[in-house]
Amino acid sequence: MARIEIDEQRCKGCGLCTIICPKQLIILCSKVNNLGYTVAVFDPSAINCTGCTLCAEICPDVAIKVFK
């Protein structure tokens, strides 16, 4: 089982991670960070994250950490 951590204060809500995740485990939520962007969140109940790191690879703000 793997999981990711998204740094909410670094996320600019571009949504690139949401389209690249093969399991669609990341969504943009209505939460707004200090910069005024609606941030991406990882589904905390997700058990099928494979830790493929694609979300972190595409993230332009290096806001994602992947644990496996």
């Binding site: 571009c14 690879e57 290096v62």
Partner: peptide, 27 residues
């Protein structure tokens, strides 16, 4: 659980000025 993806050492831990979705950050 081990961290398998982290920020490269050569990249400072700072916020960039790039707009959302700009590929400069990725490059």
């Amino acid at each position: 659980m081990q961290q398998v993806f982290k920020r490269p050492l050569s990249l400072k831990d700072v916020q960039t000025h790039f707009c959302p979705g700009c590929h400069h950050g990725t490059v």
